[in-house]
Nucleic acid binder design. Structure first.
Length: 564
RNA sequence: AGGGGAGUAGUUCAGCUGGUAGAACGCGGGCCUUUGGAGCCCGAUGUCGCAGGUUCGAGCCCUGCCUCCCCUGCCA
């Protein structure tokens, strides 16, 4: 558990309402929430807030949170999405127990309720075309006009509805509408459509139904059936609340309280299902779980932890105002968690050969490395050291500037857990590039400290060339270089904001032998570099591929950025 | 006279019954360090959307205004 999670949970206006209701006994002390995704896409970082909110409230107030799929539109929904959503919610650390429901579970009941409204003269079958309905709805400023079919007799409506259900009519030929108020300033109340004809197979009910309920005629009643107390949704449904209440009240059924909050946005990314789908379909990323994607699957594959994502959601809180959270906060949260739990390893990403001239030929020794300085129980491991090593190319400069205090000609540096080495000679190829460093080591400095007390400023990571595991390492930058990819110039497209080089593949990289057996999904800190996660798709037994989750904070790199 | 929301540091949020603004991240500086990691210390930034009003006193109350977001799917 990270600091953020162990700290007193912050409160928000939703929790305050629940707390107040609990205090006054409004719902007899019950607290029932639900997370209601439509199975037509993958969950992303924005959904995480809603998941944490709903499951969090249930946990904090001794209630339950249901997982309910809002599957009322068979043309867009698929079982593949259901499975992915279940996995993602579970992975985030939440458990809905037996409470997995589907709006489609309620199709029979919904149909009975529709007939009830027809009998009560509160719903009618409209023969108008979609176009007509749109035209007669009016505009934001002008009232709509009533359908010529609005006052059909209940018996006729009942008959027509039954025949709609039986598949006697083609798609789009008729709809069932609620009879409310065509002059309402709230467009949602202008005789909203309750059922449409869809000769489409549903992922759960197959071809049983030829008519399907609209969101507005399914969501509130589903909440009602499940005895939900607090139905939390996003701001765009605020205008639907009167309708939510109208259906429950007209039906005379239990009515939960709908509460709306502002969806969370994050910089440098898009979360609209359509855009995410475009990225995948246009092969701009390697699938829904590409490590650059803001999907839960993408974040997981990238190496983010559920703890970090939960801490992130907790810190950004819940409110009603528009917002865009800096991606840097998510990065902070994952560093905070991984710093506490990730085993340290050494890996050299851009290798530079080091030969130790005074090292006995063929000799190998083992040095002991601490697995996690933040967690003594993580223990230590042995790392082979020899006269032929790889170090990071960036850790040497032939002509170092002022604040560079790593290796340079004539200068001494420490190899972590190993020895002090001094660079005596720089070997170059014909092109004048540095290809090798000839160094000498000080035998007295084994383990990394000098008996004479002399200091070196820099500690370098390294790998013994004869023992190294060659690996591939993948570095990621945000898919979009700009904070708000949705902001485009006149006539532009959001795709214009796509960063050209968001993926960098490094190979060969050399890792300490320990890493050969790293399992897919395992996370490590590569010392001085960042946190890395074994890729679940590209790794092969004995040949892990690493994804960089996030870099370590790097003062030197920051300096460079400022100067450059 | 459409309806519904929202406006507090760069960002995300606190600020409960009015007493001259806080946290976190980010940013700047320093200390420390066998990860230039981690940790620790210090610091800067707000005309609390604007304008009036009530009050000894207003981010909080009142009035008017401004700006931004959502709503005219047989999507959710």
């Amino acid at each position: 558990m990270t600091n953020a999670e162990s700290a007193k949970p912050r409160t928000d206006f939703v929790r305050e309402i629940v707390a107040e209701d609990t205090r006054t006994g409004k719902w007899e002390g019950r607290v029932v929430t639900r997370f209601p995704p439509e199975p037509n896409g993958y969950l992303h970082i924005g959904h995480a807030s809603s998941i944490c909110l709903n499951f969090g409230i249930a946990a904090e107030f001794g209630g339950v949170c249901h997982l309910r799929f809002d599957d009322t539109n068979p043309v867009k929904e698929e079982d593949e999405y259901v499975q992915a959503i279940r996995e993602d919610v579970k992975w985030l650390g939440f458990d809905w127990g037996e409470n997995e429901f589907y709006a489609s579970d309620y199709f029979d009941q919904l149909y009975e309720w529709a007939k009830q409204l027809v009998r009560d003269g509160k719903a009618y079958v409209d023969d108008q075309s979609a176009d007509d309905i749109r035209r007669t709805r009016g505009t934001l400023k002008e009232p709509g006009t009533e359908s010529p079919w609005r006052n059909r007799a209940p018996e006729e409506n009942l008959d027509l509805l039954e025949r709609m259900k039986n598949g006697e009519f083609p798609d789009g030929s008729r709809v069932l509408r609620a009879k409310i108020d065509m002059a309402s300033p709230n467009l949602n109340m202008r005789d909203p459509v309750m059922y449409r004809i869809l000769h489409a197979n549903h992922h759960r009910t197959g071809d049983t139904w030829r008519i399907y309920p609209m969101y507005d005629f399914a969501h509130g009643q589903s909440d009602s059936i499940e005895r939900v107390t607090h139905s939390v949704c996003t701001l765009e449904f605020e205008d639907h609340r009167p309708l939510y209440e109208w259906f429950c009240d007209s039906l005379g059924i239990y009515r939960p309280q709908q509460i709306e909050f502002a969806r969370r946005n994050t910089t440098h990314t898009v979360t609209s299902k359509r855009k995410l789908l475009d990225l995948v379909r246009e092969n701009r990323v390697d699938g829904w779980d590409d490590p650059r994607m803001p999907t839960i699957g993408g974040l997981r594959r990238r190496g983010f932890t559920p703890e970090a994502i939960r801490a992130f959601c907790d810190r950004i809180g819940i409110a009603k105002r528009g917002n865009t959270v800096e991606f840097a906060l998510l990065e902070h949260c994952v560093r905070e968690h991984l710093n506490a739990v990730a085993p340290r390893r050494m890996a050299v990403l851009r290798p530079l050969k080091v030969t130790i001239s005074n090292w006995p030929k063929g000799r190998t020794v083992e040095v002991e490395g601490v697995n996690n300085p933040e967690d003594e129980s993580a223990g230590t491991r042995m790392i082979p050291f020899s006269g032929s090593l790889w170090i990071e190319r960036d850790d040497f400069m032939e002509d170092p500037p002022k604040k560079f205090f790593r290796l340079a000609p004539g200068r001494e540096a420490r190899l972590r857990y190993g020895y002090f080495i001094r660079c005596d000679e720089v070997v170059k190829n014909d092109a004048g590039e540095v290809v090798e460093l000839i160094c000498t080591y000080d035998p007295e400095t084994k383990g990394g400290s000098a008996p004479d007390g002399r200091k070196v400023k820099a500690t370098l990571h390294w790998v013994s060339a004869d023992h190294a595991v060659a690996t591939e390492v993948r570095h990621y930058e945000p898919l979009f270089a700009v904070e708000n990819p949705n902001k485009v110039a006149e006539g532009g497209d959001w795709r214009d904001n796509l960063a050209p080089d968001s993926l960098e593949v490094l190979s060969p990289c050399y890792a300490e032998p320990e890493l050969a057996t790293a399992m897919p999904g395992e996370r490590f800190q590569f010392e001085r570099l960042g946190y890395y996660c074994v890729d679940t798709r590209m790794s092969k037994p004995g040949a892990p591929v690493f994804n960089r989750t996030v870099t370590l904070r790097d003062e030197w790199a920051k300096q460079q950025r400022k100067n450059g």
